[in-house]
Design a binder for these strands. Sequence first.
DNA 1: CCGCATCCGTTTCGATACTG
DNA 2: CAGTATCGAAACGGATGCGG
Lengths: 215, 215
Amino acid sequence: MPTSRSYQDACGIARALDVVGERWALLVVRELLLGPQRFSDLRSGLPGASSNLVADRLRELAGRGVIRRRRLAPPAASWVYELTDWGRELEPIVLALGGWGLTVPLPATPTTLSATSVLLFLRGSARPDPQAPATYRLELDDQVWTVRTVAGRAHIQPGEPADADASLRTDPRTLNALLENPDLLADAISDGSAAAAGDLPALRRLLRAVTSPAA
Amino acid sequence: MPTSRSYQDACGIARALDVVGERWALLVVRELLLGPQRFSDLRSGLPGASSNLVADRLRELAGRGVIRRRRLAPPAASWVYELTDWGRELEPIVLALGGWGLTVPLPATPTTLSATSVLLFLRGSARPDPQAPATYRLELDDQVWTVRTVAGRAHIQPGEPADADASLRTDPRTLNALLENPDLLADAISDGSAAAAGDLPALRRLLRAVTSPAA
DNA sequence: CCGCATCCGTTTCGATACTG
DNA sequence: CAGTATCGAAACGGATGCGG
């Protein structure tokens, strides 16, 4: 019986940690914050976790009701994991923890950075010009995301956009660098680490929405 | 070198968990949210953690700058642990996590409940009558706390109050029950699980401030 | 007694290999 | 693609020891 060990403490903090306090659990939640993901998507977002670990956490979190396993409609016929309504209530907490974590020094050795992590940062920090709503197609490590800027906020979903003003194909680390310094876009394109198409001024506006938020 | 293992992930959430994601770490932070505590206080607040575990976590959290070890002024000449300013920034996050955790079913087997846990709940939930500020002496498992109700809020500190309107001596679990149902106070006193002194109506107002918050 | 350190059995983690 | 099986290494958890 893999009944995960409990703190046996009636305090709410301990009870929360009984559910999401195990190693990797909150990072699995993080990966699902922007929408349903398949097992292999989760694995590539959590390259440091072994496959059995990811499988264990998914089983436990599903058993606790934080996430759910769902079958995609045909012809996809694949399985995805997604947060339940209850699990989604962790979102502000996890994001606040992430804000605090930005003040933690970066690990010295080379680090990973998942697409979801960068996109959560983008969504949380971008203040796009409300006068110029736009839709973008972002392809990060072969996964496609839809980004829409509406009413001064960025909305992000996994999957293809119906219609995009501009598109960008790159990797999470490069996108992160571009969000810190949008002027690097030309360099990234010329050295092949990024490829852009469509309304490039709109794309620049998106990248600048983090460093130069609209008033 | 007990250099705790890192997620090696640049995401803020992962970096936060590198610091406070280990087992028991956030519960140590919880125990310090209301003020400095000695090693033995921490141990009695975390009865499920072995002594070496507590010592390990304290060392790690101190090394990371979340907490600090400080010598009390003579004649106490003892050591206490306390949150640094940086560690204190975890407070809203930990409290939010605790709020979510209240929706987690209680562990089946008998649970512990630390004085800090109940007092955090009291502080977070009590809406005392702003018209009747008061100071209380609370003695929980031989540790003394000062509770002051001011401006519709409860303020809590470890240690003796300078001057108390009323005092209550009990254990965390009984106090928790009394906060849920203040009418049990007479029973608790008569069966010896609580002892009260001073302005008893004021004490009843404190207990009722959680279930019947002032408008 | 307080504040740990050491020892040791058990559980979990993490890497690799493997299967439907 | 979506996991399971296996196994050594690390961490946890309980008991005990020990200096101040």
